[in-house]
Amino acid sequence: MNLPSRNASPGRPKDLEKRAAILDAAKALFPARGYDGVSMDAIAQAAGVSKLTVYSHFQDKDTLFVEAVKAKCEDLLPSDLFVARFEGPIRGQLVRIAHAFFRLITSDEAIAIHRIMSRQLPEDSHLPRMFWEAGPKRTQEAFAAFLKAEHAAGELHVPDCTLAASQFFCLLKGEYHARLLCGCSAPMESPDVDAHVDATVDLFLRAYGPGRR
């Protein structure tokens, strides 16, 4: 497990460096130990800061968990991927989004968090909702907004962007992601990932390409 460096980067504001160290610690510890297995003391120790500093940046563990999920998503699936650029064929941007999403959902950290969500939790647990809103929901809404912009520009024909976004990501997950969650699949080789992404994007374009009007 890689924990964050405690050395500040030259020229970086101290508060931002501490916040980044806290988030890095949270991103490492939550998947490794589970939500209940992580304390704010442990986060502080891993980040090389005081517990008071952790609370000054993140008011409670729930907030820190949500921000860690958001930060992990931003690491592998940056928001600028969903900016409609209208530079060249749309297929290229869809392929880039698909590859980034696939890397995210198949990362060790993402699989660990999904397994945590799959465990039996109390009926009143707010953890699944927090995770959903911080990660999958935000990603799906960002892609739906991208589709809406491409539809308005005539690059795609997508009558229901929310539905189409869900379909795209479900297609990308496919059987392989389900097998990963069950612990019965080895990492997919790069040529196989490329083939899976290309086939998914092509299927999506056959359904929602501009010629479907």
Score class of each variant (00 low, 15 high):
Ser5His: 01
Asn7Met: 11
Ala8Asp: 03
Gly11Asn: 09
Lys14Glu: 05
Lys14His: 02
Lys18Asn: 14
Ala25Asn: 06
Ala28Ile: 08
Leu29Val: 01
Tyr35Gln: 07
Val38Lys: 11
Met40Cys: 13
Asp41Val: 09
Ala42Val: 03
Ala44Arg: 08
Lys51Ala: 08
Leu52His: 05
Tyr55Trp: 02
Ser56Met: 06
Asp60Ser: 11
Thr63Gln: 06
Phe65Ser: 06
Val69Lys: 10
Lys72Asp: 15
Cys73Val: 14
Pro78Gln: 07
Asp80Leu: 05
Leu81Ala: 09
Leu81Asn: 12
Phe82Met: 09
Val83Trp: 00
Ala84Thr: 05
Phe86Pro: 10
Gly92Met: 04
Leu94His: 07
Val95Glu: 10
Ile97Ala: 05
Ile97Met: 10
His99Glu: 15
Ala100Thr: 09
Leu104Ile: 04
Ala110Glu: 13
Ile111Glu: 07
Met117Phe: 03
Pro122Thr: 03
Glu123Cys: 13
Ser125Leu: 07
His126Gln: 12
Leu127Gly: 10
Pro128Met: 04
Pro136Phe: 03
Lys137Pro: 09
Thr139Leu: 15
Glu141Thr: 09
Phe143Gly: 09
Ala144Glu: 11
Ala144Arg: 13
Ala145Leu: 06
Leu147Gly: 13
Glu150Val: 02
Ala152Lys: 14
His157Gly: 02
Cys161Thr: 15
Cys161Val: 13
Ala164Lys: 08
Gly174Val: 01
Leu180Thr: 02
Leu180Asn: 06
Cys182Lys: 13
Ser185Gln: 15
Glu189Gly: 11
Ser190Val: 14
Ser190Asn: 09
Pro191Asn: 02
Asp192Lys: 12
Ala195Asn: 10
Val197Met: 06
Asp198Cys: 00
Thr200Val: 05
Phe204Glu: 01
Gly211Tyr: 03
